[in-house]
């Protein structure tokens, strides 16, 4: 098999795992098993997969409220993530964070974030710290199109450009901020122009084209790692679900959703692979494997013990761990 197909298959596998993880967790939520709401990224998987395929384990990642895919693509342990969504012992954060605060420092995943744009200052600081330590690791900072209207976006990009920090900013632009069309609340020519005006060169990419995201990211990461300073990737995509697991998204125009379904990044990548000669059963196997893996994790999480109530007092301050 051509190396290109192998790389695309790896991307597809990541995307199928993200899709299966979230669909399974959504089913768990609907069944009353998952205590809090989820922010699914269904439809946006090509961004997470294409970007993170170009990161090393020691590269760091900051994410946002819609971060399951980012964490999985960065290599976070899916079993521990599912346990965390269920609030069970052994979860990524011991049941203290839940869906919106998944972190896995063992793979450089410095955390999802419940505050829009909250990860931006953290990412630039992590990059500054790595620079001080003489590391050649870089930091990838994922945020949505809604984040570009908050102050930390302006501050963080200016800062990263000023100190020539190794940061890849990724604006995962799904066209909405919660329930509002971002274009209806955003003046000016958009995220890439804003970045350029602050001295951060920006590249736009079709965020539903995994191969294109992968290729664009590869070039940007090479520049950043070589000391070229920060870059921004603007990836246009579409959120196929509502804002959270409790939002059926009935507020959205049906023809818009139908068109978006035609543009599903997983279906698109599958058709590219078919054109490269990969047989359908091999593609189906990736989806089936992912679904099997995640439904086993769901059953495992649903049967797992709750955290010891005494642990509620641990890890606040001092040595009380």
């Amino acid at each position: 098999m051509a190396t290109n197909s192998a790389r695309l298959l790896a991307l597809l596998s990541t995307m199928q795992r993200i899709r299966a993880f979230e669909e399974t967790a959504m089913a768990g939520h609907a069944a009353g098993e998952v205590p809090g709401p989820l922010h699914p990224s269904i439809g946006q998987e090509a961004v997470a997969a294409g970007v993170c395929a170009n990161l090393r384990v020691d590269d760091r990642l900051t994410s946002n409220h819609r971060g399951h895919g980012h964490a999985l693509a960065k290599g976070a342990d899916a079993a521990r993530m599912m346990l965390e969504l269920y609030g069970r012992a052994g979860g990524s954060c011991g049941g203290k964070g839940g869906s919106m605060h998944i972190a896995d420092f063992s793979v450089g995943m410095l955390g999802a974030n419940g505050v829009v744009s909250g990860g931006i200052p953290i990412a630039v600081g992590a990059a500054q710290g790595l620079q001080l330590l003489g590391s050649d690791a870089i930091v990838c900072c994922m945020f949505g199109d809604g984040a570009i209207n908050r102050g930390p976006f302006l501050e963080g990009l200016n800062w990263a450009a000023l100190y020539r920090l190794p940061v890849l900013f990724v604006c995962e632009d799904n066209g909405v901020a919660a329930f509002t069309a971002t274009a209806s609340v955003t003046a000016g020519p958009g995220v890439a122009a804003r970045a350029e005006s602050l001295g951060v060169p920006a590249v736009a990419v079709d965020g539903n084209d995994a191969a294109a995201v992968d290729a664009a990211t590869a070039a940007l990461v090479a520049t950043i790692r070589a000391g070229g300073g920060p870059r921004l990737l603007h990836a246009r995509t579409y959120r196929l679900t509502g804002h959270t697991s409790t939002d059926a998204a009935t507020w959205r125009a049906t023809d818009e959703v139908a068109a978006a379904r035609e543009n599903d990044p997983i279906a698109r990548l599958e058709s590219v692979l078919r054109a490269e000669g990969v047989a359908q059963p091999a593609l189906d196997a990736l989806r089936d494997d992912a679904l099997r893996e995640m439904s086993a994790l769901r059953a495992h999480a649903n049967a797992a013990p709750w955290p010891d109530p005494a642990s509620a007092f641990a890890d606040v301050i001092g040595e009380n761990a």
């Binding site: 760091r60 900051t62 420092f105 410095l110 909250g118 931006i120 200052p121 953290i122 990412a123 630039v124 600081g125 992590a126 990059a127 500054q128 710290g129 790595l130 001080l132 330590l133 590391s135 930091v139 102050g151 930390p152 501050e155 963080g156 200016n158 800062w159």
Partner: peptide, 17 residues
């Protein structure tokens, strides 16, 4: 940029400075 002074300090601490 007070948000980033504070937040960058945090990020830098998370990588060991």
């Amino acid at each position: 940029s007070e948000s980033t002074i504070m937040g960058a300090g945090l990020g830098a601490a998370l990588v060991g400075t």
